[in-house]
Design a protein around this nucleic acid. Sequence first.
DNA 1: TTAACTGTTGATAC
DNA 2: AGTATCAACAGTTA
Length: 282
Amino acid sequence: MPELPEVETVKRRLQEVVSGLKIIKIQSLHPKSFFGNLTDILQSTITDISRRDKLLRFHLDPGTNLLVHLKMTGQLIYVDDQIRRGGGHPTADWVKEMPGKHTRVIITFDNDAHLYFNDMRIFGWMKVMNDQAIAREYKKHGPDVIDDQFTAHYLAQRLRRRTIPIKQAIMINQIVGGIGNIYASEILFVAEIDPRRPAGELTFQELKKLVTVSKQVINEGIEYGGTTFDGLYVDVAGLAGGYQDKLRVYSREGKACLGCGGEIQKVKIGGRGTYFCPQCQS
DNA sequence: TTAACTGTTGATAC
DNA sequence: AGTATCAACAGTTA
């Protein structure tokens, strides 16, 4: 579920709480959640955390990495002694009950803190990867939506003669990284573009607006700490984001369009629920 | 009860 | 190469 703003929110907090900590124990509780040798990263120290697209990278010393994809339902929950005693940074109450039913991996640090990788649907994963393997992985990706490399010229070149709906196109991370199903609907509403339009038929002016709006909406999502539905996405403290209250069209089928007062419609595009205003978006 | 839905993305067949 | 469909999985909703 997490898209760029959610992963970025997790990254920022994680950077503060686990940078400098040494991994002293790892428990893999499900065979599909952790790949690579546990022993390869035991006794390693986390030097930094970075994000590319929806991927989280733990930089380790000595030189390797733990790459993480949360997919639909992944969560990374950090709990240390202070949190268990009810102090420190605010957290959801249930983080003190970790591990939970859906905990798939537990990492223990040298300060006795734990990082819990919860993932109900088991689509997410953690992989031990060296720098070269990471580089190969990143090469498959387009620029992040908020990267300066993501421009109207770039997008025009990538979408030329393509017939898939524009909404589907901006969700392909080989084209642009970080946009998922929720923000795709939001972005196209703000850009006043019909999500069903064939991607190759947008004018350059429309692409310019699309690129600008994409960066704005995604940055807005980051500012509000991401979007939470049904408690599936939460930050490292188990707390919900705030952007679900700011959504303009997503999950608002039949409700009044904030622009014209007309009815928000829901359609399926590429098998995914898509919300838009037929009046405002063309 | 059963079917269809869900925030992701990779494989496959055409 | 680009597109459409299905699959991975578990839970909730119609």
